[in-house]
Design a protein around this nucleic acid. Sequence first.
DNA 1: AAGCTAGGTTCCCTTTCGGAACGTGTCAAG
DNA 2: CTTGACACGTTCCGAAAGGGAACCTAGCTT
Lengths: 166, 166
Amino acid sequence: MKWTELCDETCPVARSLSVVGDRWTLLILRDAFRGVRRFEQFQTNLGVTRHVLVERLRRLEAAGVLRREVYQERPLRHEYRLTERGKELSPVLVLLGDWGGRHLPREDGTRLTYAFRDTGEAIAPALADARTGRLVDPRNMTARIEPPEAPPETLAAMPAGDAGSA
Amino acid sequence: MKWTELCDETCPVARSLSVVGDRWTLLILRDAFRGVRRFEQFQTNLGVTRHVLVERLRRLEAAGVLRREVYQERPLRHEYRLTERGKELSPVLVLLGDWGGRHLPREDGTRLTYAFRDTGEAIAPALADARTGRLVDPRNMTARIEPPEAPPETLAAMPAGDAGSA
DNA sequence: AAGCTAGGTTCCCTTTCGGAACGTGTCAAG
DNA sequence: CTTGACACGTTCCGAAAGGGAACCTAGCTT
């Protein structure tokens, strides 16, 4: 299987990985969430080679995850900003970081913690259902493939909630 | 920066990616969550080449994400099972799949949905705090690097560590 | 002019990957 | 007793991707 064929896969995980599933892309996004926007800064922070960085930024732009925006006219310069679609990847990075923090500790013991900005309360990241707020135990979860936007009576009794518009 | 140096990074996202941050590893884990355990089945499902698959399985085993277990003695055979540590990656894959499902739809319109096993209620995956169950809006979240978790006495007795600057 | 900055390009060489064949230990069939 | 099948690798080769470093472009500064 060629890597580029993943975008046609039935599994949405595979399709996601066709965009973010390489060595550098998620690190680029991590930096983007930290506020990095400029080419040079990505390059310096990550230590990725320049042509790889160009290629990844182009791919993320093509996927609608980043947007290229002019920030200076006279020598024409662009910066890369997260789109809404890109920002929605934030929870993935948070959970990934949390996992790494718990299972791959640093030698020196420093660790990254998350907290609510408003209350300062520490966050223990977990998966939940957006509508009910109920926490999701993976063992109590099923996944299944559904046909195109058919109104399946099995689940259609739900109120039309805003599914993840952020 | 060499890829293998990532495991020393301050950022736990980078450390996680030193384990799962390549093209095939997350797909292997996705299959593992679906119940795949045998080499041949991973290989057939994914279409990954055999030596790459061997290398990834070894890495995941070394990282404590998969465990190699004998399932047959006479021609000695092993299978690969998720450890607890591995199972804790499940939320990452769920969120990643959800993102892909929402933003990278298939041509034919089929989509993957999640539901609670007990109630059958659909799940809209989101990030929440495990302790309070409160949903986390990424904009209302801060991250910061903390010194080693240590009893206050020990902490006071130690020379002030630096909080790595990335 | 020379140098600086920011964002790429180009070149070369090494590593990794994809594809396919081969190896190993055991059983079952012919 | 040979052949084939099965499951899990291993080996080999050519192609692709990646790392490292120099170079290019456009405008501004000294």
